[in-house]
């Protein structure tokens, strides 16, 4: 058993060492590569969505230029960058789309690919996902959230 514990501690330490030390004042925005990095991530994501049968149908009537601009703005704001998201709420955007976990899973998968292709380190990827995933409930249950807002 001692051997097992030694292996476990060793691998945990290894994991700790493999993590890049980060400056405490470095924002996620900077770690994503700033405005240029986020733009690359969003363009990669649009490319992935374009080839994703599960998702592409939602974008048939979408103004892609506006979508791209608002998403860049949103990722910038979410990652503590110098932007303010000026688009509609997640509930407003996703109302009447009947989105379920299949679509949300597919988008997360495409976003991970987009970030990996953009060279975003794993820690920053996880940080951004941890900030976006809490929007799940508002996206999946958009109508309930909108009705709640009206009351």
């Amino acid at each position: 058993m001692t051997r097992l514990i030694t292996i476990l501690i060793a691998t945990t330490l290894l994991a700790a060492c493999s993590t890049q030390p980060t400056e405490p004042d470095t924002t996620l925005y900077n770690r994503l590569g700033g405005q240029a990095g986020i733009t690359t991530i969003v363009d990669n994501l649009l490319f992935e969505i374009g080839g994703n049968e599960t998702l592409i149908g939602f974008f048939a009537d979408t103004d892609i230029d506006r979508f791209r601009e608002k998403l860049i703005e949103q990722l910038c704001e979410v990652s503590d960058g110098p932007c303010e998201y000026t688009g509609d709420s997640m509930a407003q955007v996703h109302a009447d789309m009947d989105i379920d976990n299949r679509h949300f899973d597919a988008l997360v998968t495409d976003l991970i690919t987009a970030m990996t292709e953009a060279g975003v380190p794993t820690g920053a990827q996880n940080d951004l996902l941890a900030r976006l995933v809490p929007m799940h409930d508002e996206v999946i249950h958009a109508e309930e959230h909108l009705n709640g807002d009206e009351r």
Binding site: A15, A16, T19, T22, T122, G123, A124, N126, D127, L129, A130, V133
Partner: peptide
């Protein structure tokens, strides 16, 4: 748990 330990899931 995302981004939970050493910035890992």
């Amino acid at each position: 748990y995302l981004h939970a330990l050493f910035e890992r899931d």
